[in-house]
Design a protein around this nucleic acid. Structure first.
Lengths: 140, 140
DNA sequence: ATCCTACGATGGACGCAATCCAAGTCAAGA
DNA sequence: TCTTGACTTGGATTGCGTCCATCGTAGGAT
């Protein structure tokens, strides 16, 4: 994120206290909050902020390319602020913990031309699934 | 799917007319129906089948490993019957069309040990995104 | 062929995530 | 300071999925 607020202002984003708080909450590595979690943290700083506003701000940040939306389980979407440094995800199948990962190699070349069905392919998302150390520890 | 019903019977699956219809609807390549779409098609053959039953049957087929659940867009989950032949997906960003693809290369080796955060990684899902020929055709 | 019974089906109520909307509020340029 | 269009609000609404009490039935036993 670093100078997210500066970049947004340059793009003509009207800077309200609500938007500022949402952007501040979404800062750091391995941050993958749901909209409700973002709202809960935003409320700590700005008690009257509404859910609708959080949804609006998140949607705009996604459109602007500053945040990526993840749906790793069919439940609530999660918002990842690390959009400026492309990466993939490692997800615990039991507890849902998510880590950012940076696999090596060109993932794009694996898909042969005759397997593209005429699509113009523009990006690849990779999700590794398994058990995190804590969940692998507990038997069963 | 081929002899899905036979395999299910061997596993002690009680074969009801409802389950048979759900299994029949989920047959073929590049089939990625939502639960509601499965229900709609099932109703054509068995008018009184309920949505709850379709959800139950789909959930069981997923547990049995005969069908995989996809959430490519955060909207309704989709059900892919091709679970016995592992594959990945190519999704149109505009219309949502999904094709099965089989990329070459070992996707697992790309993830360095120090990038695994102690996880025991058991599978990898790859989603290619882009525009299908029809959507790329229309300008805008 | 018939009976039994445990497992499956039903459908309406419920819950969660997300979106919509009309009315009120405010950031930022003049 | 004023003005205005963009933003915020919260309650209603929608979409997707699950739950649950009741009814029905597949398939083994006789």
């Amino acid at each position: 994120m670093s100078d997210l607020l500066g970049r947004l202002r340059e793009r003509g984003w009207r800077l309200t206290s609500q938007r500022r708080v949402v952007a501040e909450v979404l800062d750091g590595e391995h941050v993958h909050l749901t909209a409700d979690e973002v709202h809960a943290r935003a409320v700590e700083r700005l008690p009257e902020i509404s859910r609708a506003t959080v949804y609006n701000a998140l949607g705009e940040l996604v459109t602007l390319g500053e945040v990526v939306e993840l749906s790793t389980d069919g439940r609530a979407k999660r918002y990842d602020p690390n959009a400026r440094h492309p990466h993939h995800h490692l997800v615990c199948s039991r507890c849902g913990t998510i880590r950012d990962v940076h696999p090596t190699g060109d993932l794009m070349t694996g898909l042969a031309a005759e397997e593209r069905f005429g699509f113009t392919v523009s990006k690849v998302e990779v999700t590794y699934r398994g058990l995190c150390p804590a969940c692998a520890g507990q038997d069963a």
